[in-house]
Simulated scan of single mutants.
Amino acid sequence: MSILYANAENPCCTLILAHGAGAPMDSEFMETIVQNLLALDISVVRFEFPYMALCRLDAIRRPPNKMAVLQDTWREVYNQVRAQSTLPIVIAGKSMGGRVASMLVDELQPLALICLGYPFYPAKKLDKPRTEHLLDLRTPTLIVQGERDALGCREVVEGYRLSSAIEIEWMALADHDLKPLQRSGCTQAQYLQHAACRIKDFVVRQLR
């Protein structure tokens, strides 16, 4: 299994970060958010699901593994990090990685859950929400979501009933990758920095 460790100088926690369905653990998005988190004293562990690890080996694009495999991979990585770290653990994911983590978070019992661009519904399928397990979520959860996210726009998501443990940080005029329209006056880099700051604030609150 591909696992990548990045240690902050004076870490307050270890954050395990899973990639989304279409990009690896070292994509530009992942690299940028990791560097921002390290600067805020959050150590980060990244890993790749089996299908993405195979893609890295032979450059053949594959669909994600079945959900049972994705979940078992998350459990394996969490248990490995838990056995090695004395710090509080936060689990997190970009899109699909966050969705899988959200299905396991109450079982694994980390300090908190962070989702970056949660896929509330499949593209163009608003009638098939992926929210049933979010109704009774108990673990403190922060979702950083673009208002224009094609998998969970603000207009639709604000109509859902979600657990009171979930907070949503809306990024104005941003898409699924937290990239805003030019008229927002902000850049994706600025939004990812803001997302990291919001994550740090959220984690500090849970540590208290």
Rank of each mutant, 00 (worst) to 15 (best):
E158A: 01
R198I: 07
A53G: 10
M52C: 02
L38K: 03
C186Y: 04
Q190C: 00
N79H: 06
V81S: 00
L116D: 11
R148Q: 14
R198H: 04
H19V: 00
V203I: 15
D136I: 02
A112G: 13
C197M: 15
R161H: 08
N36Q: 13
V45Y: 03
D127G: 10
V77C: 02
D106Q: 08
A18M: 12
A174M: 05
V157G: 01
T14P: 05
P63C: 01
V203E: 06
C115R: 01
D72A: 13
I143G: 05
V105I: 09
R130F: 05
T32P: 07
R56P: 03
Y118T: 10
Y121N: 07
A165V: 10
A112W: 07
T187S: 11
C115Q: 03
Q35N: 15
A196M: 06
D177L: 04
G152R: 12
G159A: 06
R82G: 00
G159K: 13
Q206C: 15
A92Q: 02
N79G: 00
T187Q: 03
A53Q: 14
F120N: 08
K179P: 00
R130K: 11
T14F: 03
D201K: 14
L54H: 00
P24E: 09
Y160L: 04
P63T: 03
Y191F: 11
D106H: 13
N36C: 09
H19F: 02
F202C: 06
P24D: 10
Y78F: 10
Y160H: 07
G20L: 14
P88K: 01
R154S: 09
E169G: 06
S27K: 07
F29K: 11
T141C: 08
Q190K: 04
M103D: 09
L87Q: 01
D177Q: 08
L137H: 13
V45G: 04
L70W: 02
V203Y: 09
C13Y: 09
S43W: 01
D136F: 08
D58W: 05
A21M: 12
T14E: 09
V100M: 02
P11Q: 08
L17T: 08
D136H: 12
I33Q: 07
Q109E: 15
Y5C: 08
D136N: 14
H19P: 02
Y5W: 14
K125F: 10
R99H: 04
K94Y: 03
C12Q: 11
L4G: 00
Y118G: 08
R138L: 15
D72R: 08
G20N: 13
A165C: 06
S164P: 12
R161K: 09
D127Q: 09
R198S: 12
V34H: 11
D149F: 04
E48I: 04
Y121Q: 12
Y160Q: 00
V34C: 13
P140T: 12
V34Y: 06
L151Y: 12
M96H: 00
A23R: 14
V204E: 14
Q206A: 10
V34P: 03
I60N: 11
R205I: 09
K179W: 00
M103P: 02
E107G: 13
V100N: 01
A174F: 04
R82W: 00
L162W: 14
